[in-house]
Nucleic acid binder design. Sequence first.
DNA 1: TCATAATAGTTACATCTGAAACCATTCGCA
DNA 2: TGCGAATGGTTTCAGATGTAACTATTATGA
Lengths: 151, 151
Amino acid sequence: MPGHALLELETFLPYRLSVLSNTLSQAIAKVYEKRFDLSVTEWRAMAVLGYCANLSAREVAERTAMDKVAVSRAVARLLAKGHIERGTARHDKRQSVLRLSEEGWKIYDQVAPLALEHEQRLLAHLNAEERQWLARILDTLWQAELVESKR
Amino acid sequence: MPGHALLELETFLPYRLSVLSNTLSQAIAKVYEKRFDLSVTEWRAMAVLGYCANLSAREVAERTAMDKVAVSRAVARLLAKGHIERGTARHDKRQSVLRLSEEGWKIYDQVAPLALEHEQRLLAHLNAEERQWLARILDTLWQAELVESKR
DNA sequence: TCATAATAGTTACATCTGAAACCATTCGCA
DNA sequence: TGCGAATGGTTTCAGATGTAACTATTATGA
């Protein structure tokens, strides 16, 4: 095809990242979606609340990189299922205060190890040197892209 | 939180890949969605057909990592817009044969350079050594994850 | 202190998406 | 040959998603 730009998907970074990340996320998701009836957004919210309790919905959105509508819906479903509890911030009645319930913790304690295990299985294919480079490179790209996207 | 697994999203590989890849894809998509009225799936199909013409829908699906329903719909819309042409395989009447139209090429020739440029802008933040490591690591993870996902 | 703007979160609507059912064609094999 | 299974592709339906509009509350500043 003379005269046309050469865009080869197989070696195109955004494409490769996208496919890799999707198959990876789905592989983990498949497990907890069936077994615990949790969507990806729901699990993300739970994951972040398991790591840091008493966040507002906005804070959950920031930390999960989901938008506030997605968080609102995930929170509604998690409340309905009894996986989280919601209070209101004393100093600002607009803000909610979210945390895992007793039940929520039980689920978290099953899903989190699964996720970590999957990550380890994947990282096992890399040696120590490669892991360090990967971490470093992701940091750099992350920074660069976040700056770009805010312009 | 004693006794609970420590899953920190900020350093969790699948999560980092997912966020990075999404912001990256969206950044590029935003441009051609507005300017050329193309969805991500539509552009993916065009990209692969620009690189290799006369593919069947199934082959497009394989190369774009989209499922066949998504491809079917993207193809339908691209046909309606006149961006691609469709024939039938001589040896198998079930299979379609897809290629960019004259019009399609005109759009491809504008979007592909944009995408490549965005990739270059991102890669500019990495030095030669980092780029090599990244390519190598992605290869490895790609292989590993595809094998996993097919089990 | 009051009016306006900004923020937290929800709702409504239109679009997108995936799973499963579906049709047409081809393959495998007795 | 011919019949059941497999394959390529489309349609349907139910659920997910993003944008924009909305309510309630708090911040700002004349």
